Computed example of a mutant assay.
Amino acid sequence: MLLAILLPFLSFIFRGKILTGIICFLLQITILGWIPAAIWAALSLSNSRAEKRNNKLIKAIRENGN
């Protein structure tokens, strides 16, 4: 999460979203754009973690249901 706030574009690149990382970097170049880029990266990271958690729960439910 610290990486998403300090260097938002790297957060996207490390997660394999190269194009999104480049777009975020272009936004981050401006001082005013740094805050929205950091918020975007932090929310994206949070959503990604939640999606992984939900997929894991769905998989566990399907395995126990059969």
Results as ranks from 00 to 15, higher is better:
residue 1 M to N: 08
residue 1 M to G: 09
residue 2 L to G: 02
residue 2 L to K: 00
residue 2 L to P: 04
residue 2 L to E: 03
residue 2 L to N: 01
residue 2 L to S: 00
residue 3 L to P: 00
residue 4 A to F: 03
residue 4 A to T: 01
residue 5 I to L: 08
residue 5 I to D: 02
residue 5 I to P: 03
residue 6 L to I: 02
residue 7 L to E: 02
residue 8 P to K: 03
residue 8 P to F: 00
residue 10 L to T: 05
residue 10 L to Y: 04
residue 10 L to A: 02
residue 12 F to R: 00
residue 12 F to D: 01
residue 12 F to K: 02
residue 12 F to N: 03
residue 13 I to E: 06
residue 14 F to T: 07
residue 14 F to E: 08
residue 14 F to K: 09
residue 15 R to T: 08
residue 15 R to S: 10
residue 15 R to Q: 12
residue 16 G to S: 08
residue 16 G to Q: 07
residue 17 K to T: 10
residue 18 I to E: 14
residue 18 I to T: 15
residue 19 L to F: 14
residue 19 L to C: 11
residue 21 G to V: 00
residue 21 G to I: 01
residue 22 I to N: 08
residue 22 I to V: 13
residue 22 I to G: 10
residue 23 I to G: 06
residue 24 C to K: 04
residue 24 C to S: 09
residue 25 F to M: 12
residue 25 F to N: 06
residue 26 L to E: 08
residue 26 L to C: 14
residue 26 L to A: 12
residue 26 L to N: 08
residue 27 L to W: 07
residue 27 L to N: 07
residue 29 I to Q: 11
residue 32 L to N: 15
residue 32 L to G: 14
residue 34 W to Y: 12
residue 35 I to E: 02
residue 36 P to L: 00
residue 39 I to T: 05
residue 40 W to Y: 12
residue 44 S to M: 08
residue 46 S to D: 14
residue 46 S to G: 13
residue 47 N to C: 10
residue 47 N to V: 11
residue 47 N to K: 14
residue 48 S to M: 13
residue 48 S to I: 11
residue 49 R to L: 10
residue 49 R to W: 11
residue 50 A to E: 13
residue 51 E to T: 12
residue 51 E to W: 09
residue 51 E to Q: 15
residue 51 E to N: 12
residue 52 K to A: 15
residue 53 R to P: 10
residue 53 R to Q: 15
residue 55 N to C: 10
residue 55 N to I: 13
residue 55 N to G: 12
residue 56 K to D: 09
residue 56 K to Q: 10
residue 57 L to S: 08
residue 57 L to M: 10
residue 57 L to Y: 07
residue 58 I to P: 01
residue 58 I to Y: 12
residue 59 K to I: 01
residue 60 A to V: 04
residue 61 I to D: 06
residue 61 I to H: 08
residue 61 I to C: 06
residue 62 R to C: 06
residue 62 R to P: 01
residue 63 E to N: 05
residue 63 E to H: 03
residue 63 E to L: 04
residue 65 G to Q: 14
residue 65 G to F: 15
residue 66 N to H: 13
